[in-house]
Nucleic acid binder design. Structure first.
Lengths: 185, 185
DNA sequence: TCCTTCTATGCAACTCGTTGCATAGACAAG
DNA sequence: CTTGTCTATGCAACGAGTTGCATAGAAGGA
């Protein structure tokens, strides 16, 4: 299970509430991990109970109060131990690929619209990543020298960018294949 | 949920037992979907109960009998309906990326071994995909003309190959970054 | 004034996925 | 002759993840 560890990393980078974590999981952390607010609140509860993180009630004006979490010593130890354990290389799960192979038993041309929709989504995500890269790492506003944390964030972001570019190129290939098959039927 | 649909596609390509499906999920279908035999047996039971698939007891010599499943008309209809529904573009879940960002709060150099292990695993997988591609699609043993199903299988395999190549290039980038950070500490 | 949106937290019920264990016949290696 | 591996199926328990719903104050627009 890595959600706990992803939360620990995120809280080490910047303490915050469950709500804030949920938004980060829609953005920067979301480049490589996803979670809903339900999962996050539940796991935060458990981690607090286990003493991995500390809570601080923060009153706010013009909005509901929030609970700000930060990593406690035992949490840091848990993260450190996990970092030294080996993990299994990921296996992919690509629903669209199931559809593509399934299209052999239906109408391949019917998938064209769907593939184009995915192209659009991945293209948007790529643009979002590239904007983040310019803002934080390569643009004129970016710091001249990066510390270790920033270097590591950048290399993970480069991974996200490479993934989206690869996916877009593959979807082009898929579209060309579907068009090639379409008229023949 | 797409496991049911992945099983339907696999059974349409070739009827088989739960055990055979489990092995396919370690290989060709496993390029884009994974499942353990437990999940497969459970889902097969449910699909059979719902009338999506038919069973046939097949006695075998020198091995236990098996239940061979094949897709029934309602199953085909379910698959067809699903193929015409839109799905959400996948979001990635990359545990290694969590570790890489977490390394900022530990020793980045300690991750080098782990990244090299992943490189090895992805390199093996790529070799396996390329061997499959030569055998089934581009080699001298491959059929001269491909039907629609084979074309679609090939484009999915090309996706797997592109994914592994992209991942290997990114892991090189990660390693270079870790080496760069190592001595500075 | 009402409706929607944003911040902020949470319960309950459910499905999906993993892990450990169990059975059982046949075969191969030591 | 015992141990291990391969085929083949399955139960039980648990943990992870999703979906629907609920609450509640404040801001902003119709």
């Amino acid at each position: 299970m890595a959600l706990e560890h992803a939360i620990l990393v995120s809280l080490l980078e910047q303490p915050g509430s469950g709500y804030e974590l949920a938004r980060r999981f829609d953005r920067s952390i979301g480049y490589f991990w996803t979670a809903t607010h339900q999962q996050i609140y539940r796991v935060l509860k458990r981690m607090e109970g286990d003493g991995w993180i500390d809570v601080r009630e923060v009153p706010q004006q013009a909005r509901p109060d929030k609970k700000e979490y930060s990593v406690a010593a035992p949490g840091r130890a848990v993260l450190s131990a996990w970092l030294h354990e080996p993990i299994e290389p990921e296996s992919v799960r690509h629903e669209l690929a199931v559809k593509i192979r399934g299209a052999a038993f239906d109408d391949p041309a019917a998938l064209i619209r769907e593939v184009e929709r995915h192209q659009q989504a991945h293209s948007d995500r790529l643009a979002h990543y590239l904007a983040g890269e310019r803002r934080d790492f390569t643009g004129p506003e970016a710091p001249a020298a990066l510390d270790a944390g920033q270097e590591l964030q950048h290399v993970v972001l480069r991974g996200g960018i490479a993934y989206e570019q690869m996916t877009l190129a593959w979807l082009d290939d898929v579209l060309a294949t579907l068009h090639r098959l379409g008229p023949e039927r």
